[in-house]
């Protein structure tokens, strides 16, 4: 009996050890970024090309001090607040448009069987999965012609590629989660589709709508590719801004401002992490558009 108990205890310790190691694997790189943001040093101790930058940390001669200066710099010099505002404006307006279009579409996909349903579902899946390069050039040319380059409207529209499939398919799932008899009762009461959507479906799926909107917002916040090509000085977003602080410095042969990059990265991920944790129950539905259910 006691031997059995020991065995059980041992396996519990092993399990906790594994859990903690896994947590370490997740958190270590993040914590290094956060911590490096607080560091001012003469350069990386080790660079990618080997020991060319051997620091003097362990030789005890210093060269590193901890200070919030990089964070302050990121917030000031990198115009982080501006990036933040840009990201919020673009993401919020894009998500709102996606809700206006995706809510009725998601409702119809959840409620009805009709010809063309497979086509729409397939198109939304393709939209989510497509390589940006397959649409980038037309966007580039048309935006150039219409003057939408580096504008909020232009970016909000381009991010519908991310947000429309998310909102439509997630809402479809949330509507599907409601017992279908509730809708059938409403249909037989003589209610129109828009009445049912407004008075029955939406109130019941409101928490879901909030989750879908937050998930879409984070997706837009984190997006880098379209931002790299279609934003400029005016609408530069957080994820683009964090990076370009670095890459532009390479191009102009400045010294690598790695600590600044780390500070900026930390600031960029904080809202995304908090929001994602708030909707973590729906992450899988959001990423797979409900296909993995």
């Amino acid at each position: 009996m006691s031997e059995n108990k020991n065995k059980k205890n041992n396996s519990r310790y092993i399990r906790y050890l594994l859990l903690v190691s896994a947590a370490l694997w997740v958190l270590w790189p993040i914590s290094i970024m956060v911590e490096e943001g607080f560091r001012v040093d003469i350069g990386p101790l080790f660079s990618g090309r080997g020991a060319s930058f051997v620091g003097e940390f362990f030789q005890g001669q210093g060269g590193i001090k901890f200070s919030p200066i990089e964070y302050q710099k990121a917030l000031r010099i990198e115009a982080y607040p501006r990036l933040l505002v840009n990201s919020v404006i673009i993401a919020v307006s894009s998500v709102l448009v996606a809700i206006l279009a995706g809510l009725p579409a998601g409702f119809t996909l959840a409620m009805y069987k009709f010809r063309g349903k497979a086509f729409i579902t397939y198109a939304l899946l393709a939209m989510r999965t497509i390589s940006p390069f397959a649409v980038l050039l037309p966007f580039f040319l048309i935006y150039g012609r219409l003057g939408l380059f580096d504008t909020y409207q232009g970016m909000a529209f381009v991010y519908l590629i991310i947000n429309l499939p998310i909102i439509t398919m997630m809402m479809r799932g949330f509507f599907k989660d409601i017992p279908k008899e509730i809708f059938e009762a409403a249909f037989m009461s003589g209610a129109s589709d828009s009445y049912i959507l407004r008075k029955v479906a939406l109130p019941l799926a409101l928490p879901g709508l909030a989750a879908a909107a937050v998930f879409a917002f984070v997706g837009t916040w984190n997006e880098f590719f379209y931002a790299l090509f279609l934003t400029g000085a005016v609408t530069k977003t957080v994820s683009r801004g964090v990076w370009s602080g670095f890459s532009e410095s390479i191009e102009s042969f400045k010294i690598l401002e790695f600590d600044e990059l780390n500070a900026g990265g930390t600031l960029a991920i904080i809202p995304a992490v908090i929001l994602s944790l708030a909707v973590q129950r729906y992450l899988a539905r959001g990423i797979t558009l409900g296909a993995a259910e």
Binding site: I182, A185, M188, K199
Partner: peptide, 25 residues
């Protein structure tokens, strides 16, 4: 139609549930 699982609108009061067919149509 009356359903096995009642299919009431959980976000509405009893009054609103009963009044629903008149208001909705």
């Amino acid at each position: 139609m009356v359903f096995q699982n009642f299919a009431l609108f959980p976000n509405m009061t009893v009054y609103e549930n009963i009044a629903f067919p008149i208001r909705a149509s």
